[in-house]
Design a protein around this nucleic acid. Structure first.
Length: 422
DNA sequence: TCTGGGGTCCTAGGACCC
DNA sequence: TCTGGGGTCCTAGGACCC
């Protein structure tokens, strides 16, 4: 029987911020999304105050102030760095690891001796990660990934479990499933919940007991697999090597609304540049680029407009200049004056390996060793942080760039920001 | 005034082919 | 009168995840 463990960091972003601020111990802390828009992480103290996940900040500003909640803008570089430390500890302790997201990993514990118990092993993971990084994690153990997710949920919800739940036994599985609403199940979101409820399926156990064939007919193979996984049949395996990306998106809400073409052109150039960097990081080239712009979907009093243009490049490329140029052409074709734009971005698709693309006979091949060298040099300079080199099209003023009013220092990635011990 | 960003997978329907 | 059927590829849209 396969055995999976899901290790999930508790309140990850909020915990990262607290690591370097001992003065915030026992204080409520929240972390905001890009642009300081919504709440995306809460410390236990903030949860206890009843602050909800994903709520727009402007709606609870007064509440945050009243309770002295400390707010942080997302500091992605910091979280990624801490995440790496946690993951490398897991990789040392477990035979096979799938890094599933910035704050969770699946482990394959199949064949692991039951002595010390699986639960004991879970405790070892918790203790080691806690001691070496200061991040607290919970562990769920079960014969399928979907059940391991639920076990982890239980470990978080009930402190009496000591942060580890072993759900390898059938009776325990059914006992837990009966307690959980169906939308706690991995893969069941808002829409599916509503549709399932119409059929009298309310708890995770109801879903486990549904007929898989009928579920497939009425919903999809995905939901069918979920039903089987809830019954202990593993349909999803451990994926150690990350699948190669099929698309890359760079998109942001603007700090201030954009109304003039020149500013939008700068923003789109910036996204095309970021996209090209990501592409080179993945060692891929792209043959398609989509530009999109939109007004705010939340403001019903403003005139609404949203549009996208997809361009085919002559040859697949990772050259920032070609991608900026294509993005400009696309933007020009969809731009309309007179709207207050709230968001824009680019999407790269149709990927190839560099060097392996066969151009058509008359394609003009701009992709040559010199371009490649130029881009490499550019990336190296920017990685070293020697004062960023950038394209004039990206602009200098950047009134549209995102709001990050409560950003913490780069404690772990910038020398000048290292925390001091007095 | 102020509402995230980056992904994946599946399905249905149309175009096209033999 | 009666106008195939099956396969593949593409795209748009829906749903979900963290």
């Amino acid at each position: 029987m396969p055995v999976f463990a899901l290790v999930d960091c508790n309140n990850f972003y909020a915990s990262c911020e607290k690591l370097f601020r001992p003065d915030l111990k026992n204080k409520p802390v929240v972390v905001l999304s890009n642009n300081d828009g919504c709440v995306v992480a809460r410390s236990p103290e903030a949860k206890a105050l009843g602050i909800k996940m994903a709520v727009p900040v402007f709606q609870i500003r007064e509440e945050l102030d009243r309770h002295g909640v400390v707010t942080f803008s997302s500091n992605y570089a910091l979280y990624a760095d801490i995440s790496q430390r946690v993951m490398s500890i897991l990789e040392d302790l477990a035979p096979r690891v799938e890094v599933y997201s910035i704050d969770e990993a699946f482990l394959d514990l199949t064949g692991m001796p039951a002595n010390p118990s699986l639960e004991g092993f879970g405790q070892l993971l918790r203790a080691t990660v806690g001691q070496w990084t200061g991040i607290s994690v919970c562990v769920g153990i079960a014969p399928t990934k979907t059940l391991a997710k639920l076990a982890n949920h239980a470990a978080k919800a009930w402190p009496a479990t000591g942060g580890v739940v072993d759900l390898t036994r059938k009776e325990r599985q059914r006992k837990l499933l009966a307690l959980l609403p169906v939308d706690e199940v991995w893969g069941i979101g808002r829409r599916l919940k509503a549709r399932l409820q119409k059929q009298g399926i309310h708890t995770a156990l109801d879903l486990a007991d549904a007929d898989p064939h009928q579920i497939r007919r009425q919903f999809s193979v995905v939901v069918e697999k979920t039903v089987r996984e809830l019954n202990g049949t593993a349909c999803l395996g451990l994926e150690e090597t990350p699948a190669t990306k099929k698309e890359i998106v760079c998109s942001r809400s603007f700090g201030e609304r954009i109304t003039d073409f020149q500013a939008m052109r700068e923003a789109i150039s910036e996204y095309a540049t970021r996209g090209a960097e990501k592409l080179r990081g993945e060692q891929r080239t792209a043959k398609q680029l989509t530009v999109f712009i939109r007004t705010s979907q939340f403001n019903s009093r403003e005139a609404q407009y949203s549009n996208a243009a997809t361009l085919e490049l002559v040859i697949p490329t990772d050259d920032t200049r070609s991608l900026i140029e294509a993005a400009h052409r696309g933007l020009k074709s969809i731009w309309k004056d007179g709207y207050c734009y709230a968001k824009g971005g680019i999407l790269l698709t149709d990927f190839y390996d560099p060097y392996t693309f066969q151009p058509e006979l008359f394609d003009e091949a701009r992709d040559n060793p010199k371009t490649r060298q130029l881009m490499q040099t550019l990336d190296q300079i920017n990685q070293k942080g020697l004062g960023r080199v950038f394209f004039a099209a990206q602009g200098i003023q950047k009134g549209w760039s995102m709001k990050r009013d409560y950003l913490s220092p780069a404690y772990t990635t910038r020398w000048s920001d290292l925390p001091r011990v007095k």
